[in-house]
Design a binder for these strands. Sequence first.
DNA 1: TTCGGTAGCGCG
DNA 2: AAAGCGCGCTACCGAA
Length: 659
Amino acid sequence: MIASVDIETSCGVTECPGFGLSNSSKCEHAVHFKQNKIDIIGVWDGQAYFQFNEVQAFDQWLDNTKARIVGHGFKFDYKTLKAKGSRLHPRAVFGDTQLLGACVHNKIPAGYLKAYNEKRKELNAPLPPKQRHRVGTPLTLKTMAPFYLGVEPFWENPTSHDDPNYNRKDCEYTYRLHEKLVALTEQDGTYKFYKDYLVPWQKLLAEAEYEGVLIDEKMLHSMYGEATRELRTLEEEIHGVVGDCFRAYRNTLVDDLRSDSNSRLERYLETRLKDKSKSKAVKKRYKEALTKAEKELPTQFNLASSQQVLRILEWAGIDTAVEKRDKETNNWIEKEGTDKYVLKRAKVYTKNEFASKLLKYREKETEVSYLKQYINAVVGGRIHCTLSIVGTRTGRLSSSGPNLQNVKGSLRLPFLIADPTLYDIYTVDSSQIEPRVIAYLTADQEMVELFRQGRDYHNYATHKFFEETRVIPEQDIKKSEPSLRRTAKTGDLSIIYGTGAYTFQTMLLLREEMAIPIERCKEMVQSFRDGMKGVIGWKQNLENQYKGGTRIHDRFGFLVQARDDASIHMTLFNTFVQGMASRMIFHASLMAFRDFCAMGIDAKPLLWVHDEVVWRFPKAHSEFCRKLVDKRMTCYKLETPHGNVPLDVEGNLASCWQK
DNA sequence: TTCGGTAGCGCG
DNA sequence: AAAGCGCGCTACCGAA
């Protein structure tokens, strides 16, 4: 028997002012599986609706019926149920309509969503803030049920989320949606991908999110304190330098206030004031208000304001002109910017010291804001991010709440990941998986041979970029031409995806602080492309097929799609390579995890950063586990007419997360 | 006061 | 076409 399940939750932190509220401005506890409480567990078995308030009753029902459960975005429900003591086993979880929705070809069109969200806006207007209808996306039940089932859109009262009637509706619609979307995906030929990969992947993610990663809170706080102090020093230094500039800026603000005050006063005296004898008193009032406003003006620049930084940069003689693409017309337009590119340009081309100062400040400021995020995210000594498997078009994972896929290398020290007395932490990444996947897909003979012979891709690329280096044996490039190799490394992957000379120049400036004339960049890009004719040709052919309506699937059965609002040339091939690489790594972690489970070894992957996986291994078995994980990551058969492309991994066993 | 868009930045 | 792609988060800022 299949049954759909949906739970309603609210803040479960008794000392929180939002306690018991499902959707309040007080807190976000209702959506954290460790901080929420369950108000309703609703179940629809196709015939009848049941409701439980206690997980024990739900477990009892599950034991009796042996139901196979479907849900919508059920990972959250699963974690919450488990955290409240439910014995719900992953085996009992049969499907998820959100994952099905990601697989069906006929997705909700943009126009439909637009209409939905306009209606939403209308209904939201009279509602109190923070208690409004949430935005409808292509994968929310609120939009999927009306679209695929033809039922009326249903607008829950957002202030009382625990209304049993709404829960019943959610359960029923999930149940019907499941039947409908299974049929649709079977027609589309995507059901197999959903069943064999997405559902098991989702279950693995649920286990990892549930466990979370252990944090050394003491270290985290001390790093935050230290970074904050350093930031303050850098900030003071900058404010000390820009004093003149600030006073000029402040004068313009004062002038603005005065002229604004004057014009409002005049208008008032002319049009509103009937009793002219009161004009003196009015003037006095305006004068006082003006003085007060002037007193409240800032006493120093806000360095987080790009508008104000722009003034500083102009004062410091830094060129702020940048050229960007207009989103609508796709034309190049002149703009002003204060970003890293502008600052590095000033630092490298004109040796501007102020630019260096600001770069240092910005870097520290980012560290502080990241550390703050992590401090706020710790619950019970751990951070539990959410890993979304349908959040990206490419099929990569995305991480949120907080995003643990963009943690600066220098900030990874407090991430113990798991109890160091019991576990070793294994950080393993797949070496150069994207060019390897490219070699496999394109079956380019040179690239296949390159990897088969265990050679280095960046050395190879250096030969493609710089004709004059071809007299040097490839294996000697790294030590005899390190600078050229770094240049090649900067562009050897992205140029295949579409990077041109101008972007290449920018990347060289940002990453290597190299100042290369554009003509030289053009030559390098051209030279590289000429050397990669096989790969570029395959890419072109893929794009032509896609334009002709061919459905492109990767070896997992994943449908490869270009971005709607961008050119196929820029996104299709990248999507194929990036996504497939990520699926290979993720699936390898599932295979290894299953191996460990079968052997009774308590090893688990806890974090995925695209081509990097962070595991915890029981100390007694870590060497064995390491070998098995490496094997699972490298055992894919990437067959080409020129032989199989080998894979390679680089792993590090330690007591915390390694860079 | 809130909302939505933008700028900027981190990771792969 | 001077065409890298893929994400999430914070602060700012103008409009409502």
